[in-house]
């Protein structure tokens, strides 16, 4: 577990000429009792890493699909302590590295002094905190450094060059290249600036570069994955899971992880 687990999982896929695939699901959607089966399905479908969303009442970086998933999760009584307790219980069955995607406030309220150690103890390998930019990192720095958790940095097309370089160097586990300007959710087209952006990140980053936001079809998965080391797909996975179309999730994963389709 920890930083190395994430990086190694991605590098192993890349070593056999394939690309990493990181699906996002919302913890507690539709309820926490299904989390184990959901994670096992993704693991058996060869997901490289799983990004697990923590529901928050005010998710400003998310589009309608993930907002709705968060609402369903909160409605079913999902809380961060409950999520951690389920993860701890199923720790031995889950071998795929897990990364939590959470806004800062649930961590803050839980207590920054203990939350990272509890997250690590639940078997989680890393964190993505979309509303904690570089400028506010000092708020958690001393606490997260007591653990081996990876703090994955989001880098955007909008970021100035110097900032791109700094974030790429700092990121642990992998770099999250935000492939669109805006919030999470499906997009019809992929930006033509994406290739140059990913190349820039790869030049500076000691860890793999994965692209996410707005990717929804197997074709887009293959196209974007080919530019870097892999892809992250959120809204589309949440949508398919909600509709009960699990087999289509597997198709998306395979579009990146099966070398034959690349």
């Amino acid at each position: 577990m920890g930083k190395i687990a994430i990086q190694e999982a991605i590098e192993q896929v890349n070593a056999r000429g394939a690309k990493a695939f990181v699906p996002y699901i919302m913890a507690g959607d539709p309820s926490l009792s299904e989390l184990k089966d959901q994670l096992l399905y993704l693991q058996e479908s060869n997901a490289t890493v799983v990004e697990l969303g923590i529901p928050f009442s005010d998710p400003v970086a998310d589009g309608p699909t993930i907002q709705e998933a968060g609402k369903r999760a909160l409605k079913s009584g999902t809380t961060l302590p409950k999520i951690l307790s389920v993860l701890k219980e199923i720790k031995d069955d889950i071998t795929v590295p897990i990364v939590l995607m959470t806004y800062i406030n649930p961590l803050f309220k839980y207590g920054l002094g203990k939350v990272f150690e509890d997250i690590e103890a639940a078997g989680v390998s890393g964190l993505i905190i979309p509303d904690l930019p570089l400028e506010q990192y000092s708020l958690i720095e001393t606490h997260i450094k007591k653990t081996d958790l990876a703090l994955i940095q989001l880098v955007t097309l909008m970021s100035p060059d110097q900032r791109i370089e700094k974030l790429a160097k700092l990121s642990e586990g992998f770099v999250y290249a935000v492939s669109v300007t805006g919030i999470t959710g499906e997009r019809a087209t992929i930006s033509d600036q994406l290739e140059g952006f990913i190349q820039k990140l790869k030049k500076h980053s000691p860890v793999p570069v994965l692209a996410g936001f707005g990717i929804s079809s197997p074709e887009q998965v293959a196209q974007v994955a080919s530019l870097g080391d892999g892809v992250i797909v959120g809204s589309k996975i949440v949508d398919l899971q909600h509709k009960g179309e699990q087999s289509k999730i597997r198709e998306l994963i395979h579009a990146a992880t099966q070398p034959s389709v690349i």
Partner: peptide, 21 residues
């Protein structure tokens, strides 16, 4: 200079907004 009033304030926004901010 960090936009903080004691511990309060700051810039807790997604990276996408940092440039604009």
């Amino acid at each position: 200079i960090n936009g903080q009033f004691g511990q309060f304030g700051g810039r807790f926004v997604p990276e996408t907004l940092m440039r604009a901010v």
